[in-house]
Design a protein around this nucleic acid. Structure first.
Lengths: 152, 152
RNA sequence: GGACACCCCAUUCA
DNA sequence: TGAATGGGGTGTCC
């Protein structure tokens, strides 16, 4: 992360994804909070996976930021959070190979996240799903609603 | 099932369980029909679960049989019926672990059912609840009544 | 073997 | 409407 010494705007992001059938039609939602104001982003994919949706919501949220920010990003996916905080460095050293020496899945999405993480100062926060975190549950509902909307 | 070649008594069993609150106080009922004669069994537990009651009613009914029988047993619980017809073999192979690699719940009850299934020739039949099967609905009412009786 | 998430089904309830 | 008791599966990583 660059700009360590500058004062950055502080943004909070909650995001969640959903995927009916897994694989199947998927939705995602993100809530961005800046100076107490909320912005909601949502999206849909006809055929996807739960994990792709979990990565996508983070990417879409971070792409909305117009300048480098300090971000607290909350997700209930350890795939996303540990991916960025624990596994990413190793993957890069090993040429994007996992512990079984196979190429990791969803490589382009991880590389997008890597670029976004270089632009911003991101604190990746894991929270347990369905444990009463209001914004997380709102994202969950919104993500599912995206699927419902497009299925009908 | 032993005694494949013997002619066994043919018994029909309907059973159902109920649990107020789940977990909470529970009741169960079974109707045994042999040569057109009905026998009714019921029971109660102060603190239990819906699924424990569904297993218990089958166990209690089968334990009433004094000799190996051919049994048609009707339940609206896929937990009971699929447990015995689809999942049991796999559980035994995998050391009583479910698909999430955790030990299955209500292990002792399943093992009792396994022993009973070895003694008798049981046809496990699932039927949809509240779809007008008179004996199933009678069991439902009787099971709920057990709770009512003991709560007052 | 572990973890998180996503889903499907039935039942029991509030 | 929503929650608990239980099972089956996939997506992904370590």
């Amino acid at each position: 992360m660059k700009n360590e010494n500058k004062i950055l705007k502080e943004v909070v992001i909650y995001c969640d994804g959903s995927c009916k059938g897994n694989p199947g039609p998927g939705g995602w939602a993100a809530i961005l909070i800046y100076r107490g104001k909320r912005k909601i982003l949502t999206g849909f994919a006809k055929e996807t996976t739960n994990n792709i949706m979990e990565l996508t919501c983070a990417i879409k949220a971070l792409e909305k930021l117009k300048e480098p920010c300090t971000v607290a990003l909350y997700s209930d996916s350890t795939y996303l959070v540990k991916g960025m905080t624990e596994w990413m460095d190793n993957w890069k050293e090993k040429g994007w190979k996992n512990s079984k020496k196979k190429q990791i899945k969803n490589l382009e999405l991880w590389q997008q996240l890597e670029r976004l993480a270089q632009k911003h100062n991101i604190y990746w926060q894991w929270l347990k799903g369905h444990e009463g975190h209001p914004e997380n549950e709102e994202c969950d509902r919104l993500a599912k609603y995206q699927i419902k909307k497009y299925i009908k």
